[in-house]
Each structure stands twice: as C-alpha cells, then as structure tokens.
Design a protein around this nucleic acid. Sequence first.
DNA 1: AACTCTACCAACCGCGTGTTG
DNA 2: CCAACACGCGGTTGGTAGAGT
Length: 386
Amino acid sequence: MGRAPCCDKANVKKGPWSPEEDARLKAYIEEHGTGGNWIALPQKIGLKRCGKSCRLRWLNYLRPNIKHGGFSEEEDNIICNLYISIGSRWSIIAAQLPGRTDNDIKNYWNTRLKKKLLGRRKQSNINRSPSGQSEDHLKDAEDAHALSSSALERLQLHMQLQSLQNPFSFYNTPALWPKLHPLQEKMIQTLRSMNDQNCNPLMHHHALSSPHQTVEGHKSNSDVYEQLQPTSASIRIQEEYAKLCNPKNMDELENALNGMSCSDAAYHAFISTSNQVDSTIVVTEAADGMEHSNDAGTHDHQQVNSSFQTEFGDILSNKSVAYTPQQEDDQIAEFDCFKEMNGPKDSLVWWANEFDAKSASSNSWDSTSVLQSQGMFQDYELRYNL
DNA sequence: AACTCTACCAACCGCGTGTTG
DNA sequence: CCAACACGCGGTTGGTAGAGT
C-alpha cells in the first residue's frame, strides 16, 4: 500500500505550461501569495494542475528575479566547490547563488560542469573493442559505459577531489567507514589499481603520500580505503579527532559512532576537523599547540592543496590538463565487478551518495546552517580565491 | 532534404521529513 | 504516540532544438 496521491492524476494536466497558465498562476501568487497550501492552490485558480507542479513552476520559472543560463565563472567555482564538499545538495548550493534554482544548477552540473571537470567520452568501448569479441563483451562495455555516466563518475570525481582537498573528509576517517559488501571492496580495489597506474592527474598527488598505519578495528575496510588517504598528516589529525571525541579506545569511538547515523558522524567529523584545516593548513601553520600537525606531512598537504587549486582552476577555465577521455574509457572497461552486481546501477548509488552526500546530511543542514556553522563557505573562498 | 545523434532543460516522480490533529 | 497530510528535495524522464551525416 503506497502513499495516497496528492491529487487526482486523471484530472490533472501534465507537460509544458501554457502562457495562460503561467499568467494565472503568477497573477494569483503575486496578489494572494501561495496561502501556504500548494495542493489547494490550483483549485482556487481554476488550473487543472497538480499543486506540486504549480509549486515547481513558480519556484523554477515564474518567481521574480530568476536567472536562466549564462553561468559565470564565479558561479561555476561556487557550484563545484560546494558540490565537492556537500555533494548533490542542490537546494543548498542554490541558496548561495541568488536567482538560481536548484533545478537549474542541477541541470547545469549534469550537462556541462561535470563534463568540464571529467572530460568527455566521445567514443564508446565498442569502437575500441578488438575484432572477434563476443556480443556479451560488447554489452558489458555498454553497461560499464552507462554506469560510468552516473554513479561511478560521481564517485571518482567526488573521491578524488575531496580526498585531495580535505584530508579529514569521510574518506579519510576510518572510524566512519561502513562495512562493505565484498563487491564494493573489490570495486575500491579496482579503483586503487587504476590509481596506481596514474590514470588521472588528480590522483597523481597521492604519489606524494607516505605509507601510514591504519586504525585498529577497521582493518578490513581500511585495507581497501587506505589508498584514498592522502597524507600521514591526515592520519595524525584523525587521531587527534579521536582524542577530541575522547573515547578510551577506538572501540568506544566506534560504539559512539554506531550510536549516531553515518551522516551525523561524518558531519561532525567534518565540522570538528574543518577548524583544524583552517588553522593549520589554510590560514597558518604557526599556531601554537598545533605542532603535531605542522610536520612535513602538512607541508606535503599544502603543496597538494596548492597544486590542486591550480589544477582545479585550470579545469574550470578550460585549460589543458593531462587527462584524456580515452583513459577514462580504459578505466571503465576494467570494472568487471559491476557485472556481478545483482541490481542495476541503482545498487551502486550507495557509493556515490552515501558517503559524502550524506556527510552533509540534508535533513539536518539547511542552507543557513551549512554555511554559518564553521564558516565552511568562507573556507572555500580562502582556498580557491573565489 | 531527411534522418540520426547529442545536448539541454522543463517537468515529473517518489521518497524523506516536518507538521498537525 | 500515531496517522494523515503537505512540502521540499534529488533523481530521472521526455520533449525539443541544433549539429552532424
């Protein structure tokens, strides 16, 4: 038994809005407001539209001061930075761009910005397949290609950018890592092998990383996640974070974390550590009491951040980077483990969404709290000179 | 000119959450 | 406390315009 429909689907018009409908809706709202009830609104106006449809039309199109298209480079930067840090929280991102709607930004990201960052795949694997391959192989290539355009792409971009930019992100905090399905572990291992081949320039920075210890109690996961941790400095501050949480041991920490949702844990980890990022890496390294993180690893990270910043800016401004779509195709083709997944790509959405998108915890963050708490947005301004 | 492919974007759908009685 | 309802969000779909063949 599902939810009752919000309106009588049979008597509701769908599809594009006519100018007359627009005019009626606009005139009514401008004169009376929405009345706090979108469901009842279309009946009041005499529109055969679903209330949700009216709301969407008003918010995305009819509302005053809406801007369409023509995104500036500054807006590109803001969108990218916020996407990297909080994931696909379009409403939050839109709240930082006056006149822009979440739908607009979402479309813009999916159709242009993401491609700008990841590069384009002009050729499918089929074209590069050696002759004599079975149809099954061709279909696999197609499946992998389709997958790459959604979950995998977001996963790669998000993980690469975030692990470089924020060593305290969920990816770099073993205490926050969930237990993985064996196939998911295999997927990460495949990513590792890709990274080992230096397939993506953004991952080259990991070559600077030094080996490090892993956190007890998460060994199986940490083995697979290990690659994603950029610097030994980050590990040390992870330990600092554990101290801040003040458990007697990691089991306690784990218990504590188990008591909170993954998203809460990640969120608090981010908030807790972001101040340290500000004080030790971005703003100054001379602060007293933080010597423990002002070691060579921190300098490494500064270099990484600096290099990343330059590279990121280059990408956004369409400058050349040592990355080719062809290489990405090669990477995608290696994801044989996807074939083993029972479900369609949706089963992988956990990958792309659960980690950092959840770390933003849309339900607990509104557009105000996100940016006010810890001045996150200002942090990004500092780093990328927006 | 006709057809196919691609990019774009408006709109829809389903789900999670907050509110209310 | 619970169920019903409304809202808001994010993912997805479908239509269309333009480019390419």
